[in-house]
Simulated assay, not measured.
Amino acid sequence: MGLCLTHPRAGYYSDGDPLGAAGDFVTAPEISQMFGEVIGFYLVNLWQQMSEPRSFTLLELGPGRGTLMEDALRVATRAPGFADALHLQLYEANPALRAQQQRRLGQYHPYWADSIEAVSEDPLLVIANEFFDALPIRQFVRAEDGWHERLVGLRDGRRAFGLAPALTPDNALPQALRDAPVGAVYEINLAGIDVVTRLGQRIAAQGGALLAIDYGYERTQPGETLQALHRHRFADPLERPGEADLSAHVDFEVLARSAAAVGLTVHPLVTQSAFLQRLGVVERAVALSKANPDQQEPIAAALRRLIGPDDMGTLFKAFCATSAGLDPIGFR
Results as ranks from 00 to 15, higher is better:
Pro268Cys: 08
Leu68Trp: 00
Ala205Pro: 01
Ala76Val: 00
Tyr42Glu: 10
Leu90Asp: 02
Arg202Pro: 01
Thr168Met: 11
Tyr12Thr: 03
Gln102His: 10
His148Arg: 15
Glu239Gly: 07
Phe161Leu: 12
Ala79Trp: 01
Ser258His: 11
Leu326Tyr: 13
Glu297Arg: 15
Ser258Ile: 13
Gly216Asp: 13
Ala259Arg: 09
Val152Asn: 08
Asp170Ile: 11
Met50Val: 12
Gln296Phe: 04
Val75Cys: 04
Leu306Arg: 06
Pro169His: 05
Leu210Trp: 00
Gly81Ile: 04
Leu255Val: 03
Pro169Arg: 05
Ala259Ile: 07
Val26Thr: 07
Val254Ala: 14
Leu306Lys: 00
Leu246Arg: 00
Asp311Tyr: 13
Pro18Gly: 00
Val270Gly: 10
Ile137Val: 06
Pro29Lys: 04
Asp170Pro: 15
Leu90His: 03
Ala93Arg: 05
Thr77Leu: 13
Ile137Leu: 12
Leu288Tyr: 08
Cys320His: 13
Val75Lys: 03
Ile329Gln: 14
Gly66Lys: 10
His230Tyr: 09
Leu177His: 05
Ala79Leu: 02
Ser289Ala: 14
Ile193Lys: 15
Phe234Arg: 12
Val152Asp: 06
Leu246Glu: 00
Gln100Lys: 06
Thr220Ile: 04
Pro63Lys: 06
Leu264Cys: 02
Arg257Ile: 02
Lys290Cys: 14
Ala228Val: 06
Gly81Phe: 09
Leu238Ala: 02
Glu30Lys: 14
Pro169Ser: 02
Ile39Pro: 02
Ile329His: 04
Val270Tyr: 06
Gly157Arg: 03
Ser289Thr: 10
Ala72Gln: 00
Gln101Lys: 13
Ala256Leu: 12
Asp179Pro: 15
Ala274Ser: 14
Glu224Ser: 09
Glu144Ala: 14
Phe316Arg: 06
Pro110Met: 11
Ala99Asp: 10
Ile213Tyr: 03
Tyr13His: 03
Tyr186Cys: 04
Pro29Thr: 00
Ala128Ser: 01
Asn292Gln: 15
Glu283Thr: 11
